[in-house]
């Protein structure tokens, strides 16, 4: 009975949250619409309606989907590589002080270097097609490295001692002690890294202009003053980024169900 009431309460809360989100979204849409009406020049600020129509028109062409597919795949590859390599380097650095001393300054340099410098430099080294992979990779790498390393260093020493006394094997140690500790840090790195990789990946495409990419479309929209298209492509990037983030977080939450601390198992 109590559980059922709790379920109803949770559902009510979810509906309330959804309504609040919808109202906030509608409010900002209204602000945009009013601003566009006040300015009354589609060249400066197109209305939400015209942007949506333009997005729909673009979506009826195959180029639109090709561009989205290409950019998405490249950014996701860069993001995944950055995350995996960052985690790997953090694990290696955690087990060897020397390697940590070697890698940490490099990560600090990558973190502090402006993304534009990387894009211009990378254009000299590699083709524009792979540019967004490299840039997304470089943006995610230091974030995943530092988060993972911090997570590993915050592992409970007393539990590690317990593992030593009972001679727990490596897999048991990872599952019982390390994973629950580092998981929130990895999630945080992914959440931050996702935003970084989309922004920087598209920026790299705008400068590198590989064919059939969102970046090239953005660049051309700006070049020919097609402001509605510019807004439409921006909308596509935002939606794409949100969908990808939600997807990744959904997968993590399903995994977390087994590993994250909670009152009842």
């Amino acid at each position: 009975m109590e559980v059922k009431q709790q379920d109803i309460h949770t559902k009510e809360n979810k509906i309330k949250k959804f309504i609040v989100k919808l109202l906030v979204f509608s409010f900002w849409l209204l602000v945009w619409d009013i601003a566009s009406r006040l300015i009354n020049q589609e060249l400066f600020l197109p209305s939400p309606k015209s942007v949506l129509i333009t997005t729909y028109q673009l979506s009826t062409t195959s180029d639109f989907w090709f561009s989205i597919g290409n950019s998405f795949v490249r950014i996701v590859i860069g993001f995944s590589l950055g995350l995996a390599v960052g985690i790997f380097l953090a694990i290696v650095s955690y087990s060897s002080k020397l390697i940590k001393e070697l890698i940490s300054p490099l990560m600090r340099v990558i973190k502090a270097t402006p993304v534009a410098s990387f894009i211009i430099l990378a254009l000299v080294w590699i083709s524009s097609v792979n540019l967004s992979i490299l840039i997304s990779f470089l943006m995610v790498l230091p974030v995943s490295f530092s988060n993972m390393l911090y997570g590993l260093h915050s592992t409970d020493e007393k539990l590690l001692e317990m593992a030593r006394v009972f001679h727990l094997n490596r897999w048991k140690c990872i599952k019982a002690i390390y994973l629950p500790t580092v998981l929130p840090f990895i999630i945080s790195a992914m959440s931050v890294g996702l935003g970084f990789s989309f922004k920087s990946g598209i920026a790299a495409e705008v400068i590198g202009r590989p064919i059939n990419s969102i970046g090239l479309n953005l660049y051309e929209a700006k070049l020919y003053l097609m402001i509605k298209e510019l807004f439409a492509w921006t909308l596509v990037i935002i939606v794409l980024s949100i969908i990808f983030e939600k997807l990744v977080m959904w997968v993590i939450k399903r995994f977390e169900y087994n590993e994250k601390p909670r009152e009842n198992i």
Binding site: K158, L159, I177
Partner: peptide
């Protein structure tokens, strides 16, 4: 020799149940 221990603190995996 294989050692087993009860530490001053319980040192349990907090989010796991007793059996696990």
């Amino acid at each position: 020799k294989k050692i087993s221990a009860v530490f001053q603190e319980d040192r349990l995996i907090e989010h796991w149940d007793a059996i696990k």
